[in-house]
Design a binder for these strands. Structure first.
Lengths: 139, 139
DNA sequence: CATAGTGTTATAGTTAACTATAACACTAAA
DNA sequence: TTTAGTGTTATAGTTAACTATAACACTATG
């Protein structure tokens, strides 16, 4: 499998975001090991150092623990931590800009809905049967 | 005025986006001159070459015309071109990812609305009164 | 003409991101 | 002990983004 890298963001940050998404989606649960640095590097045809750099971000954020010789593991409380941190970060740093763009382009909820459905395989990378749940999801 | 540069995007692209926003918002009308390369460079304390690079993007997109010795000017039809191109680009490349993030974080329309309003002037770090909604998220 | 305002090009240096290759350190299991 | 799987560090090279400094090319205006 080759790449789906977005050139508007460094690969190591996209890798970090990918793991974050997997945690939030429940694909990776607390205590689970992350895919090994070498495996990911091989699968995405990327340098191991780049993968490591992405993983180190997660360690720095307290989401993941590294055990030399064993692997890297999702910390307890990682999901909760993420739901707080990512929420605040998104609302403060990303959403205002996106919202302004939507206003500026005069996009309607209908157009957004349509586009969301047709193109929803952008960074989740996993099965998403929960997509049709509407506004109530998570429990 | 120093910087409000976002480190997740090269400056020249942010400059390009800034001009695009001004065109869409009607701040810059067709036929108008862009702020001069040197002025912008001075105002934002950025290298003139960086500004030029951002402006060149606009030339390449057919939005702007360069007249040596005079300045750079918004082309006729620029706004219409933008409303088509930027719409498509946003819906195809940006919105799906953003939408997935919103779903993943379980953000409600109320939270998004609140953030959009408070974020458009400044991104202060005060806590949210909208937090009372439903945080049944944690496991 | 000279001047002051435009865009543009040239040269060169720094830093961050990414890469290739290799080796080191540790753990579990054969 | 050996082996195969982990994370980690070292060395070094490429490219893109940004910077500083300077000069060149053109246009309107005095």
């Amino acid at each position: 499998m080759d790449r789906e890298w977005n050139d508007s963001q460094p690969i190591y940050r996209q890798l970090r975001d990918l793991v974050v998404a997997m945690i939030l989606d429940g694909v990776l649960k607390e205590g689970d090991p992350l895919p090994s640095v070498r495996n990911v590097a091989a699968e995405y045809r990327v340098n191991p150092l780049t993968v490591l750099k992405g993983y180190q971000q997660l360690v720095d954020e307290g989401l993941v623990e590294s055990k030399r010789g064993l692997g890297m593991f999702i910390n307890a409380g990682a999901r909760k931590l993420l739901l707080q941190g990512e929420r605040q970060k998104f609302l403060a740093e990303e959403w205002p800009r996106v919202h302004a763009t939507i206003q500026r382009l005069g996009l309607t909820p209908e157009e957004l809905d349509t586009a969301a459905k047709s193109g929803s395989s952008s960074d989740g990378a996993q099965s998403k049967p929960a997509e049709s749940k509407a506004r109530k999801e998570e429990r």
